[in-house]
Design a binder for these strands. Structure first.
Lengths: 152, 152
DNA sequence: CGGAATCCGGGTGGATACTG
DNA sequence: CAGTATCCACCCGGATTCCG
């Protein structure tokens, strides 16, 4: 069963140092840190636009509620990725920026952003098919990731 | 802590082509594709180990149930990232591999893997503090997104 | 071995109203 | 402006059971 299968064998990716305590691999560790619907987007916007105020961040990350934004920001802050600065003024002024750790993580997101931009046509078409109701995928689609599919 | 400004202005990241139809940016599009607790891990394992059988993949992605693994694989297949091959044998033999599109996405995950590996110490410490019940984070941890990535 | 179907609890996350 | 508090629908995802 070595040479007779129709699947072309791709060249393997660089190793992931799979022997880590508590985590499957480095990717696993990263995924747990950015686990949360809005965290990658938050990190990336903060990286792009520098320390920005709460309201501006909320406008940038569209479709996010106050509750979720605050919640995820608090977690990111507790994880040492985001730094909050309260200027203690009236009216209130608070801004959020990245720590060095957070900036490193944000930079690691760049290839994902590039991939999405380069393959935007494919992705758009895929989501259009999802919306149209695929015959071959009755429940897997609706139960999958259809929640945030409202077009903005 | 170095003697830096409280809010150091980071060097801006490369642009994200923020004017895309339906998506906030390229990163947003990518995130919707890999939305799902196990999808990035699945993609990465498939990229590393080539076309592998179902059982082997399940062993690689630990802590995943059959239901979730199958579900996410189906979505990845429907999205044109994963290719399933059924050899129609008894006992059944099926393997999963990446399409060119999936391969590209998996390669975009490499920096995240690298970041996790390089910062494994920080991440491990953070999660240890979470488990210990942090005094400074009474409710944000328990009510927050501490566990999963909401595939959304 | 490789799946499919069903039940089901709990967490996620949205909406709304309110505060300083 | 920058949050906070509360309610609750909904979906994720685990366990179990059955099929080809």
């Amino acid at each position: 069963m070595s040479s007779d299968h129709p699947n072309p064998v791709p060249s393997p990716l660089p190793s992931c140092t799979p022997t880590l305590p508590g985590f499957t691999c480095g990717l696993d560790a990263t995924l747990r840190v950015i686990a949360g619907k809005w965290k990658p987007l938050i990190l990336y916007f903060l990286a792009q636009r520098g320390p920005i105020r709460y309201g501006e961040l909320r406008r940038a990350v569209r479709d996010v509620s106050d509750k979720m934004l605050i919640q995820q920001l608090k977690e990111l802050e507790a994880d040492g990725l985001v730094k909050r600065t309260d200027y203690r003024e009236v009216p209130p002024r608070v801004d959020y920026g990245l720590t060095p750790l957070g900036r490193g993580l944000a930079e690691a997101l760049v290839p994902l952003c590039v991939w999405g931009t380069e393959n935007i046509a494919e992705v758009t078409r895929l989501f259009a098919e999802r919306e149209a109701g695929d015959d071959k995928l009755p429940a897997a689609r609706t139960a999958g990731t259809g929640k945030e599919a409202s077009p903005g």
